[in-house]
Design a protein around this nucleic acid. Structure first.
Length: 269
DNA sequence: AAATTCTCCTGAAGGC
DNA sequence: TGCCTTCAGGAGAATT
């Protein structure tokens, strides 16, 4: 499940192949994704890529008069192909360039391909998003201020894209453990000092994952291309029943906000 | 407004 | 071994 670090790694991987190059063709062979891929994506044909960037977990391919928006959903991935390659099951679309092609594969079809008229930031999917977790706008004070009177579990609060973007189920579990905060605690009942620690933990865990993804990222072309986001050793996520690295008590697993949460009842309060 | 539930889909894992 | 069931999960939409 691609989280922010993998999306970032993907962006860095494909940008050198796309930037300054022209789209020669967009082939949509299986339009059934999160939303049906609209015919308007053909607007990219013939245009030159100005840049490739990430906002939350969205990939934006910017052109002079619009942007392609790509989301990897749960199971999406992009590959750069420089020569003919057989189609695989769940290959949804290709963006053909002068020197290569970007091929999107997504078994579970939770991903997205849309065409956005400028300014892209005004699009409903992007306009209400919170700050980037690695930006200067994101810090403990911000979390503290925006969580007052909020009763939702702090875990759900952090996963809310209007609060901060791109912190998914895996990394929120990791960051809460690092900060010693119980995931089910009401967001409004977390102290300023602990929010400082949490913001720091989020920044740390995402930053590390991106750096590790960057090291496993080589040329991003060919068959492999899978960003190595799981290279990171996880402290609690997926470790139910195994000893906590800090106190050796078994890690608990419980569903909070419809999603599995992993935490240590001794170390997190 | 805020919180909760529903929804999309398929591969993997578990049960017998 | 193999078939059937269950479940996970990003995030917008719908509902309470």
């Amino acid at each position: 499940m691609p989280e922010l670090p993998e999306v970032e790694t993907t962006v860095r991987g494909i940008e050198p192949w796309l930037k300054g190059s022209r789209v020669t063709r967009v082939v949509v062979r299986e339009p059934r994704l999160r939303w049906p891929v609209p015919a308007t994506v053909q607007a990219a044909t013939g245009q030159t890529v100005k840049r490739v960037r990430r906002r939350a977990k969205y990939i934006l391919v910017d052109f002079e008069n619009g942007s392609l928006l790509i989301h990897l959903g749960m199971s999406g991935s992009l590959r750069v192909l420089t020569e003919q390659a057989n189609l695989r099951k769940h290959d949804h679309f290709d963006i053909e360039m002068e020197q290569c092609m970007i091929r999107y594969n997504d078994p579970r079809r939770f991903g997205t391909l849309l065409w956005l008229e400028p300014p892209a930031e005004a699009h409903p999917l992007l306009s209400a998003l919170g700050p980037e977790p690695l930006s200067n706008d994101f810090h403990g004070e911000y979390l503290y201020a925006s969580s007052r009177s909020r009763k939702v579990a702090v875990k759900n609060f952090i996963m809310d894209g209007k609060v901060v973007v791109g912190v998914g189920n895996i990394y929120v579990s990791e960051a809460l453990f690092m900060a010693g905060i119980h995931p089910a605690r009401a967001a409004g009942r977390v102290s300023r000092a602990r929010y400082r620690g949490l913001a720091e933990a989020i920044r740390d865990v995402l930053g590390r994952a991106i750096r590790e993804g960057g090291t496993t990222l080589r040329d991003f072309s060919g068959s492999g291309g899978e960003p190595g986001y799981f290279a990171q050793n996880l402290l609690v996520y997926g470790r139910a029943g195994q000893p906590c690295f800090q106190c050796s008590n078994p890690v608990r697993q419980k569903v909070i906000g419809q999603r599995s949460s992993f935490y240590c009842i001794t170390c997190q309060h």
